[in-house]
Every structure is written in structure tokens, then in C-alpha cells.
């Protein structure tokens, strides 16, 4: 495959960036998107140019490190996958592919396609945990949890914190991420105890960090690589409002 890549280049957080055009030839349709970028970077290094900075780690869709806004989609045009799981066969030979970093005030660009997602970590640190020592893995039958509750909790826990939701949201809202964290713990007896405190603390931190207000468009859900449902946002709203009303 021969491709034309339009890639955002930005030296650091303080400079303004711009798009550069790169032509890349003889790309196998079977390689992943990140491998294609590796090949491009290899070429750039060999020709004495600065390689393109992009985030990646596990390359199997579970760490949440890779990002990229590809042709208007977070994690590219395929659904239910992260960028590392995207294959070049999803594109056409000769196509122009536009690659941009996440765009959100709370995710400032550090360099090229790399953004600072520390804001998600800060939200987690505000309450996305169980604060007592729960010891080792309990016996499976010791705490009865219904199958629907456990399923919902696990669906929410599938969130990898990649930031695609806030990056996609026209309001730059992190509600889907926060909702997934609140929901996965609220559905389990171990997490439920601190449910009210958690919802209040995480929403407060999210607002403080400059994320926007959810307007229920559902764009986050459509672009989420883990198919987190906005039903979790409804639960977060419930948890938060009932916690506030009890104050």
C-alpha cells in the first residue's frame, strides 16, 4: 500500500504545531497502524530527521496508552479497538490519512501526537479506589454478588482510561471515564460503602481539571474502544445527586 500521511507535528507544549505531509510506500495491509508509524519513524531517523512522537505500550489493546485521532475517529475508523489493534487493511491504497493528537484543554499536547493525560490519573486519585485493605483474594462464595451486578461492574471495569471519550466529546467531558470508574465499584459490595464519597470527589476533581459538561450526545460511547455504555453516566448522575441530597 502507498499512503499519504498528514501528521500533526509540534515541538513541545509551548509551541504551536502544524501538519506535515509524509508519503510512505510498500506498506503491508497486514501490519498494525502503530507498526506503520514505526516504519515511518525508521525512515525518518535514517534520513536524519526527528521521528514522530506517539504514545504506545502493550500493543494488545489493554493498557490504554495508545491514542491518536485518525481521520476524525479516536483510535481510527474501526470500532471496539484501540489504535494498536487497527490494521492497515482498514485503509485504501493511495488514501490520505490525517493523524491528530487528542484535542482537549485537559489533555495538553506534550509533543507531536503525545498528550498529557495526567488529569485522568488525578481524577482516579480523588476517589477511584477502595480505601481499606481488603486482604487477599476472597473465597469466591464468601460475598454473594448477583450475576447482573458482577457483569455490569466488569463491563465498566473494562475502561482502560485511554481518553478517547473526552477527546471525542464536543464538550471535552470526561463523564464516561468517571462514570465507568464509579460504576464498576458501586456495583460491588466492597466499593459500594464509599460510593457517595467517591462520586462527589471524582466529579469535583473532574470539574476542577477543566473537563466540560456532559450533554448526552453519546459520541463517547460510539468511539469508546471498550464499548462503555452511557448507562454508567446515568448511574454516576444517580450516585452523585443522591449523595448530594443526603448531605
Amino acid at each position: 500500500m502507498n499512503l499519504k500521511l498528514k501528521i500533526w507535528r509540534q515541538a513541545n507544549a509551548k509551541t504551536t504545531g502544524k501538519f506535515d505531509i509524509y508519503n510512505i510506500d510498500n506498506i503491508s495491509p497486514d501490519i498494525s497502524f502503530l507498526e506503520m508509524l514505526d516504519i515511518l519513524n525508521n525512515d525518518l531517523i535514517h534520513s536524519g530527521k526527528e521521528p514522530i512522537a506517539f504514545d504506545h505500550d502493550c500493543r494488545e489493546g489493554i493498557c490504554g496508552m495508545c491514542s491518536l485521532h485518525i481521520n476524525g475517529h479516536a483510535h481510527g475508523p474501526d470500532s471496539e479497538i484501540t489504535t494498536c489493534q487497527l490494521h492497515m487493511r482498514k485503509f485504501n491504497d493511495g488514501e490520505t490519512i490525517t493523524i491528530e493528537p487528542w484535542r482537549s484543554t485537559a489533555f495538553p499536547v506534550i509533543k507531536d501526537l503525545v498528550v498529557d493525560r495526567t488529569s485522568y490519573d488525578k481524577i482516579l486519585q480523588a476517589g477511584g479506589f477502595v480505601s481499606v485493605n481488603t486482604g487477599g483474594v476472597p473465597d469466591a462464595n464468601a460475598i454473594p454478588i448477583s450475576k447482573p451486578d458482577s457483569d455490569e461492574s466488569m463491563d465498566a471495569a473494562a475502561c482502560i482510561g485511554c481518553g478517547a471519550c473526552a477527546a471525542t466529546c464536543k464538550n471535552g467531558s470526561a463523564m464516561l471515564f468517571v462514570a465507568a470508574r464509579v460504576s464498576s465499584l458501586a456495583k460491588l459490595p466492597q466499593g459500594k460503602v464509599e460510593g457517595a464519597r467517591r462520586a462527589k470527589a471524582m466529579v469535583a476533581k473532574m470539574d476542577e481539571l477543566g473537563f466540560g459538561n456532559c450533554s448526552n450526545t453519546g459520541a463517547c460511547e460510539a468511539e469508546c474502544p471498550k464499548l462503555i455504555s452511557i448507562g454508567h453516566i446515568a448511574r454516576l448522575n444517580r450516585e452523585f445527586l443522591s449523595a448530594k441530597l443526603q448531605d
Binding site: 484535542r103 482537549s104 453519546g218 459520541a219 460510539a222
Partner: peptide
């Protein structure tokens, strides 16, 4: 403000939105 001054060059209509 939360979305930021720098907008995406390419935007699409997400499925089901």
C-alpha cells in the same frame, strides 16, 4: 473552553449520534 482552541482538522458524525 474545555474543548480548547485547537480543533480537529477532520471531524465525522459518530455512529448513532
Amino acid at each position: 473552553k474545555a474543548r480548547g482552541a485547537q480543533r480537529y482538522a477532520v471531524t465525522v458524525k459518530e455512529e448513532g449520534v
